[in-house]
């Protein structure tokens, strides 16, 4: 009991006072910086019509390839310059956030849900069901994702749905493997045996005892997935099987800038920077979560 009292005393001490609040932020910069970046981008995506200074698909040949406003020859109207069709880069990045972010969040939601459900079932139930699921994940993991995307694009036509589908069909396998592994460990945990002794049904055990204990690793790879999916979407756009023009996605913008890279480096540099920022933010956030949630690292 003493030890417990000790602990609560310390914790209250830790959070009191403004100074310690500041040091808390400084100590956790690897959390606050990425979460700020992601929040800002999120809000940008939501309020794109209000924020964007120009129409992102309005072509204006008169204003082709204008450099950013802070460079020689730049116009204050176009802060980050314009592309080969005279469209405002900043506005395109802002609108691009909508498509890029919604693709990655949608895909994460779909793949994590399917992967977790199948993973828990496979791990807890075992037997033939597990064997089948695991062989399917093996196939998914070994199937070239680009080939699948190309096939889908050919059969369905390129577009938002195609991208989401292409990324989801193969993406759940990773979640499924991880969650199954965690479930296998938990299946033999004493508290699961105890639940069976008390007469819990398998459904209740999976929901009450297994799922809450796999949430931590799940969250970690979900946050890391944000960056990965943005890159994947960019890759698909780059190959021309992504969301078709003129709607802007970050990947496609990098792709379009490729042809003009010697004349107008800003066309691909700025969307590339944003992609980099999101990927890094996702990874940092994932690392931070892993440290935070791992009880072994938490102790010392």
């Amino acid at each position: 009991m003493n030890a417990v009292l000790e602990k609560t005393k310390q914790e209250t001490h830790f959070t009191s006072g403004r100074l310690s609040w500041l040091t808390h932020i400084v100590k956790n910069l690897n959390f606050y910086i990425p979460i700020t970046i992601l929040t800002v981008l999120f809000l940008t995506a939501i309020f794109a019509p209000q924020l964007a200074p120009h129409d992102p698909i309005q072509i204006s040949m008169a204003n082709r390839l204008k450099p950013p406003s802070f460079l020689a020859g730049g116009s204050p109207e176009y802060f980050l310059g314009t592309d080969h069709l005279g469209r405002d880069i900043l506005s395109r990045i802002i609108y691009g956030a909508r498509i890029s972010l919604s693709i990655s969040f949608l895909v994460i939601a779909i793949t994590a849900t399917i992967g977790t459900i199948l993973g828990i079932f496979a791990g807890y139930r075992g037997g033939r069901f597990e064997t089948i699921i695991m062989r399917v994940t093996d196939v998914s993991n070994s199937f070239p994702p680009l080939l699948l995307a190309l096939l889908l694009a050919v059969s369905m036509g390129p577009g938002f749905k195609t991208v989401v589908l292409a990324l989801s069909i193969l993406g759940w396998a990773g979640y499924c493997r991880l969650i199954r592994g965690e479930t296998l460990k938990l299946r033999n945990a004493d508290f699961v045996a105890q639940a069976r002794i008390m007469g819990s049904s398998p459904g209740r055990i999976m929901l009450k005892h297994i799922f809450p204990n796999v949430v931590n690793p799940l969250l970690v790879i979900m946050t890391m997935g944000v960056g990965m999916l943005i890159l994947a979407e960019a890759g698909l756009s780059f190959l021309g099987v992504g969301v078709p023009p003129p709607f802007p996605t970050w990947g496609m913008m990098v792709n379009e800038g490729r042809a003009e890279i010697s004349r107008a480096w800003w066309m691909s540099a700025f969307p590339g920077l944003v992609i980099g920022a999101v990927v890094l933010s996702g990874n940092f956030l994932g690392d931070w979560l892993r440290d935070k949630l791992d009880p072994k690292l938490r102790q010392l």
Binding site: A189, D190, F191, A193, Q194, A195, I197, M198, K208, H209, P212, N213, P295
Partner: peptide, 16 residues
């Protein structure tokens, strides 16, 4: 028929 297990650190769901 109930049971008490050996290891009190693992016999309870840490999230309950």
């Amino acid at each position: 028929v109930q049971s008490v297990q050996q290891n009190p650190w693992s016999s309870m769901n840490p999230r309950m």
